[in-house]
Every structure is written in structure tokens, then in C-alpha cells.
Amino acid sequence: MANVKNEMIINQLVAKVNACISVPYSCSTNMLKKLLLLLCLISGSTYIVLYWLGTAGYRSPRKAVLHKISEYGTTSYHFSQKISSYKVSDNHQNIPKFNASILFVETTDTWIPSLSATCAVESAARIYHDKQVWFFMKGLTQKKQQEQISQSPRLFLLSQIKNVFISPLNVTELLLNTPLLPWYQKVNPSKEKYWTYVTSDAFRFALIWKYGGIYLDTDVISVNPVLEKNFLVGVPPQRISSAAFGFHRHYHFLWDCMKHFVSNYHGSIWGYQGPSLLTRMLKQKCQIPAFQALQDDKCQNISLLHPTRFYPITYPGWKIFYQPFENFPNFNNSYGVHLWNYMNKENRTVVTGSNTLIENIYKKYCPDTYKNIVLNSLPKLKRKDSKLIQ
């Protein structure tokens, strides 16, 4: 009777491990190890669990196998799915592919990405499936990044995408040989009112200067690929955005922007080092168009994209994202959808079953984030104007 009971428990544990491996980011590496260890303890000496871990920051995509040894021979339980590998990038060895990468950066000390950042990175990986998508995070550490990734379902999900690379942000290395490093080493962050935003502006300029490609804010959901190589995005009235732009590596305009960043530094004014800076610098070259018709423009060899390309919903209407939609817009005229997180002071988020625009955006453009994070990780919700109440 005891043997039958043990067999039942073992079968239940095998099923749990199967479920864990089938959706890898649904449980941590430590949880998986504990389940396998529990199998060993319960089964005693009649079972051997084989579980491989790779080296150099990769978990080998090999199957976990449970071998039952008895007088009748050996029986093997092969778990239903392969244990997926996760990628972690050593910033000293691996760098984005020049002029062919989509770059995101998290400048706070967190190593757990926001829900919108997770969706933004996944959507970019899907839309730009032939390019590398890099997510640099200041809160990731070189020594603990494997553990950090395995403990965060959102990071773990992103690490499973073949063209996504997650890397610690080495600020000194990034700013080296740019006008920004002396400024960064001299400034006192404790006296800065908008330090997170200012450093975010600095880092994005340096990233595109060093590697080339496309920079996107972590609240920009990609919906169509940008084909232009050197581009800026307009916002009304006759201004330039810093939430999305792209340039070839070592493009002279970015070097001039970094020099201006330091020589005309006013960190106490919100946006002065980012969108306002790009606006000032572009005005030195040509007049910024009013963008009345849905048509892109040109400033020398820099493409100026119509605001609709990344702002189909302008910032005064940001609450539209959290309202139910009968007919989902196709965004055919846009490359990205900016969610205006800065405007969302009420911390509204995705409510499952609400049929809001934001829920439908997640379902269509970052379905893995929606299925594996939104549906599985959100607490029970009370609905009030589609706002998350906890």
C-alpha cells in the first residue's frame, strides 16, 4: 500500500515538474531544483534524477530525466518539454550588432522590468525578428545576473526569445570616449531633480552613438518595422521626441547632441536634456515642419517622421488606452504606439477581460507577456474605470 502511495506522489511530482518546464518562466530555477530533489528523497535509492546545468551563463536545453531502477530493469520518465536556455550577456564580451539592433535601457536600480517594458521588448523582438533586441539594465549585476533573471518571470520570459539579449549597463564603459563621461563623473545626483530622466537621455544618446540602430523607450510598443536608417520623430507643436529615434553608428548629429548636453546642461528643467535638446539641435539645421498632413519630411539626410508614426494617440488622450474599445485600431500608419507612462500618475494597468485598448494591444503585439505574465501574475482585480485597485 505504501509503495502504491509513493508511486502516486511520484507521479504527481513528475506532473508538477512537467508543468514547470512546459512554461519555464512560471517557476524559478530553485523551485525546479526543489521539485527534483523532493523526487529523490521520496523515491529513496530506487530513483536517480539527472538534471544538467550548462556553463558560461546558459542553461543547457537538455531534458530532465528520472530513472527508476528495480529488479525488473530501468524505467525512465522523460519530462515532456526541454528545459529552455536563458541568455545573459557579458557586456565586456558581447555588444549589439552595429547599425542593426533595437536598443532599450532601464536607468533605475531595479532589475525587475515593468509590465510595459516587458511588452515593449517582446513586441520589438517580434516586429524586428531579423534584428537583435538589447535590453540594458542598470540594476542587473555581472555576478548575480543569472540568478536575477531566473527569479524574475518577466526577465526570464524575455530571455527565452532568441533575438533578445539582456545585459547589465556598465555606465562608465558606455560613456567612455564621449563628452558625457566627464559630466557624469562630476555631477552630484543627490542635487538633481530629474536624475533618472536626465541619465536616461544621456545613455540613449551614447548607446546609439556607439552601436547605431534604433532606440525605443520602454513604453513604446512596436507594431510595424521602421525602414528609415537616420530618423527623428516629430511631436506637436513642431517639436522632436526622444522616445524613438535611429541613426547610424558615430553619426555626427549625435556627437553634437552630446556636446550640447554637457555645455548647456540644465537638469532642473524637465525634458531639457532630451526632447528639448533634440528640438534645439535640429532647429540649427532646418525648420521643423508642422506635420499637418500624414506625410514624413526630411532635414538634410535625417528623416523626420510624422507624429502618428509613434504617437497615434497623443498625450492629452492617454486615458483612451484604458477605455473599452469596440473596434480595435489597425495602426497601419504607425511604427510604434507610445503608452505615455509618464502621464499615467494613477498607475493604471492591464485589466484582463476589460476589452480595453491596452489589453488588446498586449494580446496582439506581446501575446507571451499577456498569456504568461498578465493572466498568471496579476492579483485578483476589482474594476473601477478599468483601473487596478489593490
Rank of each mutant, 00 (worst) to 15 (best):
W340C: 09
H306E: 01
L232H: 08
I269R: 09
V233N: 07
W270C: 02
G212V: 04
P237H: 13
N330P: 01
K345M: 12
C257G: 13
D297W: 04
K259V: 07
F231W: 03
Y322W: 12
V262F: 10
T314N: 12
R280A: 05
N301F: 03
R239I: 00
L254N: 08
I214E: 09
K298P: 00
V223H: 13
V233M: 02
Q284S: 10
F310L: 10
G246E: 15
K285L: 10
G213L: 14
I288K: 03
F245E: 11
Y211G: 09
F331V: 01
N224Q: 13
H250M: 04
G246I: 11
V351F: 06
W270K: 08
Y342K: 07
A290T: 13
V350Y: 10
V233C: 12
I302A: 11
K229W: 00
I240D: 02
G246V: 13
L282S: 14
V226E: 09
E326N: 12
Q323R: 15
L294C: 08
I269Y: 00
A244F: 08
S334A: 15
R348N: 09
N332G: 07
V235L: 06
S222H: 08
T308L: 08
R249H: 07
L339G: 09
C286K: 14
S263T: 14
L277K: 05
L232M: 14
H338A: 04
S263P: 00
L304K: 04
N301R: 09
A293G: 01
G271D: 13
K345S: 14
N330G: 04
R239Y: 04
K283E: 11
H248K: 13
K229E: 15
I269Q: 10
Y215T: 10
A244M: 12
N332L: 03
L278S: 02
A290G: 05
K229L: 11
S242K: 05
S268I: 08
P236K: 03
H260Y: 14
G234W: 09
G212C: 09
Q295L: 10
T314I: 11
T308Q: 11
F325N: 04
P307R: 07
D256S: 15
Y342P: 00
K229S: 13
Y272T: 07
E228N: 14
V337K: 03
L305S: 05
L339T: 07
K259S: 11
K285P: 01
T352L: 03
L294W: 08
I269F: 01
R280S: 13
W255S: 06
T279C: 05
N347K: 15
G212K: 07
C299H: 03
P329T: 02
Q273W: 03
F261P: 12
H248V: 02
E326P: 00
H252M: 06
Y211T: 11
W270N: 06
G274S: 08
R249P: 02
Q323G: 06
L304Q: 05
H248P: 00
F321A: 11
V226L: 07
P316Y: 10
N230T: 10
T349L: 04
I302F: 11
V226R: 00
N330I: 01
F331W: 11
P324R: 12
